[in-house]
Simulated scan of single mutants.
Amino acid sequence: MSFLEIKKIYTEERQKQKNELIDWLRNEGYVILTMEGDEASKPHSTGSGKSMYTADSGIKAYDLSNWKWITARQGNKELLLSLQAFDIDPKTKDRHVLMDRIGIYFYKSGKYNPEECVKEMINTGIDLPMNSEKYVLLKEIIDNK
């Protein structure tokens, strides 16, 4: 199997995990949002990077579609659930992206801030793929915030 074939399968599996998380959040009473903060008419189609990302024409096109997240609201609580957690090493201050680790950023309704998201994201310690025990832990983390 080639690298590109493996990469395609990996991307499909991440999307399946994201869809399962969306369905779980909806069952928990959350509304899935677009990045503009509106209710998503097609929740499974939200929260993926651009396939032709160019940093506003600053870089050669890059496929960022495997960058996945979910924005959701329940009452006045809004959150971004990321399928890759941000991490800042407390000693070196180096910044990392922990692929396939669930991260959560809570924010006030309509006040998503990308800089705060990096600094304040909760590293849940939960790695994909999800299972029933991990959903219980994720619910605990969300409910206790």
Rank of each mutant, 00 (worst) to 15 (best):
S57H: 09
G49R: 15
Y107A: 04
N113A: 03
G47F: 15
R101K: 15
R95H: 11
K93S: 09
D94A: 15
I70T: 00
N76Y: 09
E120G: 00
A55S: 08
Q74G: 01
I122P: 02
N131H: 09
C117P: 00
N123P: 02
R101D: 08
E133K: 12
H96P: 00
Y107S: 06
Y53H: 12
R101V: 09
A55C: 04
G75T: 01
K108D: 13
Y112V: 03
K134N: 05
K60T: 06
K134S: 01
I122H: 11
N123S: 10
K68L: 10
D87S: 12
T46W: 13
I59S: 02
F86M: 04
F86V: 03
C117M: 11
L80V: 09
E116L: 14
G58D: 05
A61W: 07
P90M: 01
D56E: 11
D100S: 15
I102R: 15
N123T: 03
G47M: 13
K60E: 07
E120P: 00
P129I: 05
G58V: 02
E133N: 10
N76F: 05
N131G: 03
M52S: 14
M52N: 12
P90N: 01
D89V: 06
D100P: 02
G110W: 12
S65M: 08
W67E: 01
P114W: 12
E78R: 13
V118L: 07
Y105P: 03
A85C: 11
S57Q: 07
I70Y: 04
G125L: 09
S132V: 02
I70L: 04
A61G: 03
M99K: 13
I104M: 13
M121E: 15
L98F: 07
D127Y: 15
M121G: 03
G58P: 00
G58R: 13
G125A: 12
D87E: 11
E133R: 10
A72W: 04
T46L: 11
K77T: 08
E78I: 04
K77H: 05
G103I: 09
G49A: 08
K111R: 14
R101S: 09
I88Q: 08
R101M: 15
L81I: 01
Y107K: 12
D127S: 15
G125N: 13
W69C: 00
S82G: 10
I88M: 06
G75S: 01
K134R: 09
K134C: 04
C117R: 14
M99F: 14
R95C: 07
K111Q: 10
K91M: 13
E115V: 07
I59E: 01
